[in-house]
Simulated assay, not measured.
Amino acid sequence: MANIASAKKRARQAVKNNERNVAQRSMIRTTIKKVVVAIDAGDKAAATAAYAAMVPVLDRYADRGQIHKNKVARHKSRLNAHIKALA
């Protein structure tokens, strides 16, 4: 355990930051999963709505550095291509 006051503070901050990062990462995955489920069901309207809800979430966390911008672009591109391919 840390003995210096600044090290104790950093340890407290690390715990809070880790909890926040885990929650945000979970939200990112959930939004992506909602789009994938709608695509698998073949529901273009639901997939489009889920995609529209997913894009700002991914962009927001890409700007904050939670997820890499290239990964966000890759997800958006692939999922949008899948949605367009639906009948």
Rank of each mutant, 00 (worst) to 15 (best):
G42W: 14
A85I: 12
T30M: 08
T31C: 09
R12F: 04
A85K: 15
R60H: 08
K44C: 02
T48M: 06
K44D: 08
V72I: 05
K33R: 15
Q13S: 04
K44E: 06
N17G: 05
K16A: 11
Q66E: 09
N17C: 11
N17R: 14
V35Y: 00
A49L: 07
V15L: 10
A5K: 11
I32A: 07
K16C: 05
K33T: 14
A11H: 06
A41R: 07
A2V: 03
I4Y: 09
T48C: 02
K71V: 09
S77N: 13
A85T: 13
R25P: 01
A46V: 05
K71L: 08
G42R: 08
A38V: 03
K44T: 04
D40R: 12
V57A: 00
A52M: 10
N3W: 07
T30C: 05
T31G: 04
H82S: 12
K9T: 07
K76P: 04
A53F: 04
M1L: 12
N21G: 04
A87K: 15
V55Y: 00
A46T: 10
K71Y: 14
D63G: 15
K69G: 11
T31W: 02
R25S: 06
R60S: 02
T48Y: 02
E19K: 12
A87Q: 15
T31V: 13
A46G: 15
N21M: 10
R12D: 09
N70T: 14
N70S: 09
Q13C: 03
A41F: 10
N18F: 12
Q66C: 08
A46W: 03
Q24K: 03
R12P: 03
K8A: 09
A38H: 04
A62N: 06
Q66H: 14
D59G: 01
R29D: 14
K8D: 06
M1D: 11
V37R: 05
T30N: 14
A53R: 07
A5M: 03
Q24E: 08
N3M: 07
A85S: 15
K44S: 02
